[in-house]
Design a protein around this nucleic acid. Structure first.
Lengths: 241, 241
DNA sequence: CTGGTTCTGCGATCGCTGTTCGCAGTATTG
DNA sequence: CAATACTGCGAACAGCGATCGCAGAACCAG
């Protein structure tokens, strides 16, 4: 009696968080969504987001590619599950020790830690902004920090978005730095070779002198200058729109 | 006499900017690298970076996919050409009107404008950092701004990198905002529906109240608060590493 | 216990991607 | 005039996400 075609075609446009995992009938599934996410996270942690293919995940679960589509409608949904899953690592224990800005900063540092543990997250955020229950829990905590501020709802959301993208940017910078320490991305050699060649031509005088300067980085005054530059830049760029 | 196999396998690991475009012999090529980049940019501007497939670019040039590999070793190299090409839009006319920070800001705004004109650039920067001659010219100008500052070479480069990622973040925010005004990405409907549902459950109280608040965004005090939050966050995050 | 229903796992396959190989043809060189 | 070194490109390959339909397992109503 029930016409399943209608139901299915409609479900495919509904968020996975609103779709029931199963509905009682039939054989018991071999795993669940969270097991899927776990396998995906393991693969992404080890070999990057690109290694999370339906075939690879299926194999790591001892299953077949087509089977995964019983749990997930698309690969993007799998990434959504993965993203929400790692949000479970966020601890809310350090809150309440200072004012609202301190709390906001504690939350930002937690987010930063998650990004450092799972670098593929930055790739995810680059092309989408998945939202699951645990993401909402984090977002809710952030909003709580801004509770008493004289800001409209949209402004609060935007403030958190800007802060979040700042967290991502700095996490990316940190990861890039500790990636420099390791060996052999093959295309980096090529880029560095071109850079050295360009510096040698003298067409880019400032670049040439800067590359020669092999002095150590990071000083007290450097951090202060960063603040100056970024604050001023932020103001100038916000004003420009 | 010449053993081409050696040459080719070695060339494939050399930056495209160090590889000669052609070497005199044989028939004249049907186009050049820049024509390739132009076609790629046109496609990316119109339909996003994902639309820049070797087949699509070839077709828009009235050519065949395999032919492109006479000009470019991989698709990534094509993206590299595209990225460098749009850097030609940067104008250095507004420089010299103020102090070094003013100049740096003028450059940042130029970069922001390029990102807004070619949103796919943000996708490129998310997964790599292509460097071509025009990119180096821009970088050199930025370094010139920092010339008289008591900073090490590495610090100067890092300062510019942070600034650049800030530009990208804000550009992304702007693009997201003007994307909200347009119609229906199909997966956004699904996400918003879940968001409304989550707000209705009462599990995320602050989110619920914030979503109810439909008041207009953007005020003088909001921009000032942004500054406070972001500056403080930057300091806290830089200190944490 | 039985028959129908509803689900599951999955082999086979589709359309798409980036990329490679080798061949036919053409311009330059000695 | 040959030899050479290039060009464009048809055909093909491997890998990707995703779909279809079927065999079989679990549940429920009677």
């Amino acid at each position: 009696m029930a016409e399943q075609s209608e139901q299915q075609s409609e479900q495919s446009e509904v968020s996975i968080w609103l779709r029931p995992a199963r509905s009682g009938r039939g054989p018991a599934p071999a795993f669940d969504r969270d097991r899927l996410a776990e396998a995906g996270v393991a693969l992404a942690d080890a070999q990057g987001l690109a290694a999370v293919t339906m075939r690879a995940v299926a194999q790591s679960l001892g299953s077949a590619p087509a089977s995964l589509y019983r749990y997930v409608a698309t690969r993007d949904e799998l990434v959504e599950l993965m993203t929400d899953r790692v949000n479970a690592e966020i601890s809310y224990a350090g809150l309440g020790a200072g004012d609202w800005l301190d709390d906001l900063l504690v939350l930002a540092r937690e987010a930063r830690a998650v990004c450092l543990r799972h670098p593929w997250l930055l790739d995810v955020f680059a092309s989408s902004a998945p939202v699951g229950p645990r993401t909402l829990a984090y977002l809710d905590r952030c909003l709580a920090c801004l509770d008493e501020l004289p800001l409209g709802g949209k402004d609060k959301l935007e403030a958190i978005a800007v802060l979040q993208s700042l967290v991502a940017s700095l996490a990316r910078a940190e990861l890039a730095k500790q990636l420099d320490a390791t060996e052999p991305p093959p295309w980096r050699r090529a880029r560095d070779e071109y850079l050295r060649h360009a510096a040698a031509t003298g067409e880019y005088p400032h670049l040439t002198t800067v590359l020669k300067d092999a002095g150590p980085a990071g000083s007290k005054s450097a951090d202060e200058l960063f603040d100056r530059i970024v604050t001023r830049a932020l103001r100038g760029l916000l004003l420009a729109r």
